[in-house]
């Protein structure tokens, strides 16, 4: 085999291979999604985070504005300490309401932000004042059954 031809084919092979990696990275994986260029961190305390996961989305009005960066347990207050990174472009008022919601009936859980009316904005490192925990389906069902049972007792 001619040396030059060999080099050509191997070069072709390596180039096609790298093109495949590039295709996977850009078209399939979309490197840019989830890695906002400039972000700032906020923390929120929840009584119960349900099935929230690290890298889960943070949405406001349905638009993804950040990601869950870290989830920790606070042994002093027995609460979950969730750190989120928010895109630098978006600022939220001090009294923004953070709640854990579920996409669809059984979908993934995310943090929803409802902007308040305060003039002051949340700065990097601040904590959300008002939060609402995840709805735990078992608790809901338990409550419902309890109410039904007491209704039956009253009607008798």
């Amino acid at each position: 085999m001619n040396r030059k031809l060999l080099d050509l084919w191997v070069g072709f092979f390596v180039a096609v291979g790298f093109a495949a990696v590039l295709f996977l990275a850009l078209r399939v994986g979309n490197v840019s999604s989830g890695n906002f260029a400039e972000t700032y961190r906020l923390t929120a305390r929840f009584d119960n985070i349900g099935g929230l996961k690290v890298r889960g989305p943070v949405k406001s009005a349905g638009v993804v504005v950040g990601r869950v960066a870290e989830i920790r347990f606070d042994p002093q207050s027995y609460e979950a300490l969730v750190t989120v990174t928010i895109d630098e472009r978006y600022k939220f008022p001090k009294d923004t309401f953070a709640s854990i919601l579920t996409a669809g009936l059984l979908g993934e859980q995310y943090i929803g932000l409802d902007a308040g009316g305060d003039d002051k904005m949340l700065q990097a490192g601040d904590t959300f004042a008002k939060t609402q925990s995840a709805v735990v389906l078992e608790k809901l069902i338990g409550q419902f059954m309890f109410n039904k049972a007491s209704e039956n007792l009253e009607s008798k």
């Binding site: 096609v16 495949a20 990696v21 295709f23």
Partner: peptide, 15 residues
Amino acid sequence: VSMPLLAALFSAIGV
């Protein structure tokens, strides 16, 4: 050297 390139190609053409 060949193996990772082939695997990437396999995944890309599979998608």
